[in-house]
Design a protein around this nucleic acid. Sequence first.
DNA 1: AGGCAGCGTGAGAGCGCTCTCTTGACAAGC
DNA 2: GCTTGTCAAGAGAGCGCTCTCACGCTGCCT
Lengths: 357, 357
Amino acid sequence: MAGTNGNGRGAIANRTTGLATLEAVARAAGVSRATVSRVVNDSPRVSPDARRSVERAIESLGYVPNRAARSLVTRRSDSIGVVITEPTGRLFSDPFFPRLLRGISAELAARDRQLVLVMPQSTADQRRAAGYLSAGHVDGVLLTSLHGADPLPAQLAARGVPVVVGGRPLEPADVSYVDVDNRAGARAAVGHLLSAGRRVVATIAGPADMTVGVDRLAGFRDALADAGIGADPALIVEADFTHDGGAEAMRALLARRSDIDGVFAASDAMAAGALSEILAAGRQVPDDVAVVGYDDSPIAAATRPPLTSVRQPIEEMGREMARLLIEAIERGERATRRIVLATELVPRASTEVQLRH
Amino acid sequence: MAGTNGNGRGAIANRTTGLATLEAVARAAGVSRATVSRVVNDSPRVSPDARRSVERAIESLGYVPNRAARSLVTRRSDSIGVVITEPTGRLFSDPFFPRLLRGISAELAARDRQLVLVMPQSTADQRRAAGYLSAGHVDGVLLTSLHGADPLPAQLAARGVPVVVGGRPLEPADVSYVDVDNRAGARAAVGHLLSAGRRVVATIAGPADMTVGVDRLAGFRDALADAGIGADPALIVEADFTHDGGAEAMRALLARRSDIDGVFAASDAMAAGALSEILAAGRQVPDDVAVVGYDDSPIAAATRPPLTSVRQPIEEMGREMARLLIEAIERGERATRRIVLATELVPRASTEVQLRH
DNA sequence: AGGCAGCGTGAGAGCGCTCTCTTGACAAGC
DNA sequence: GCTTGTCAAGAGAGCGCTCTCACGCTGCCT
């Protein structure tokens, strides 16, 4: 409250925007720009006195550093690109992306980074995005839901842009990623069916060109193997993660084997489709057939009966992705790291142990 | 392919990043920085010859303008802040935000703007976001799902930051917005029930402190008025847009009037909850009671029977928001504009005309 | 022939910041 | 009393770009 900044308010401010500049703060505080910069950037080499008066000046002028100017000289943007490439399916069928973004956003905010969202919807968009992301406008990139042929990771790697991928890439690549343990989740889900006495368990698998599809199918096989049951190929049908795809798959399964008493679907939407189909065929759930979904999406709670499902720590996945990326950027390390997060089975009425006979 | 850039490749490039600069392009093309800048910014004042050689140099050097440097002098960031403040509910219950973001993203990409996503999750986050957004780091802000007391719009307005809001604000304010015609959508939905012969139609309304809740309830009343039916207060219950809230509301309704033959719920999740409750009470859908939801979310297709619902042009809403904002920024106009988009009724089995008696 | 508008082009300043280098003050060691 | 070391603080260059201004050229009008 000293006199230093009494009339400092009107000091040099930004030409057009009226925003205070470093220069204005320096004048108001009676120090040089360099000292203000040190205070702003938490340098220890500032005397308590100087620090105090600078802080007062910053406060009274409402000074906020200009990121463009800083970025120009530091060559850091303090922002992270998040790329969501998803044709349409999963993007809308369950709250995966909102949750993931929430996790990413929380971690980035805590570390004072900006989140630049990129959702390319055409090949042209993709090309533009690749250019933008490798031009140094972001310090690193988070990639979600890669589909095998995506050239983006390699392109970014070539340009030296740090990358972390959400979900294990289909083809093994030298890239850091965070994944959810889909295989273990599926294994637990199917194990749940088997331990409840189900013996003819089918699965509606996801597409074979997506790791989530592949891994959940592997988990299905694991659980059968655990129980010493051979996998009947007739009990495996692939679908596209959608409600209608699940329904169609279930029709095919029922046509093949009428004694199915358990179904594991690799998504809740498919499970809901299967559920409808089972009921339409005049069979009871869970009495005749137990059904398990995956994702623990709102759909799981909304069906009748509600679906047992597998919950994934999606927000945590987002946070871990952001954390991994920022650490890689700060340490300048190129080492690839992998994190796999555990899932949790959420039992509901669709698999309740039946007390029949 | 001329000789100009034969050995221009190694010309002046960025110190640390190795990226080509304007200067490097200028040398390679044998012109001044100013001319390259003109080409890059599509100025008409460049001769075809100069333009061609600059374009060749840009191509061969892989030049991408440094946004920080440009932004420093133009005081534009060419990026737009998108703020999503949603405690948890709607964010995860239906694909509203992914769709909205997709629309916004498409429009911004087409106009070469970056999307900076901000999802404040605490009051501290909110304060920080407000500081960031009003510090000139973004050219404008898109706000979604405002809750009455949010100080952000006023704060941004005070700082002169252009704002467009998604969804009409609860309290009339001098702000541009894009909304969906919730009232007309609800009116059509309830009209659909009435024209199918339903006479005792109840509604599970959304919260009264959200415009979507208020507007959909108003549409319900409109439709009753259209049909010359008085609104029985006992047939209106408010819930929180969730599945369980819908179920609870339905129990209350059935306890009050046992002759209800139609229900309009202000969200699919609530409709699904209500549906379960109706079936649990031993009544048939649609035979005894017809049910209509709202949002046309994946839940609507996943219930048994699937729900008639109201589809909203959410992506279009996102696009319109972005368009409005960019136009306001470019024209520097302060005029507030409002856009209201039409909805569409999607009939499904939950309201099929019954052929009973 | 002279004047001048119009146009393509270049020179140069400067956007707001960081960071290196230098200076000056002071304490400690010989 | 001198050097040496330490540390706060300032001077100044420069990041890559845009934009104003000035310049020289052409072509048209008087």
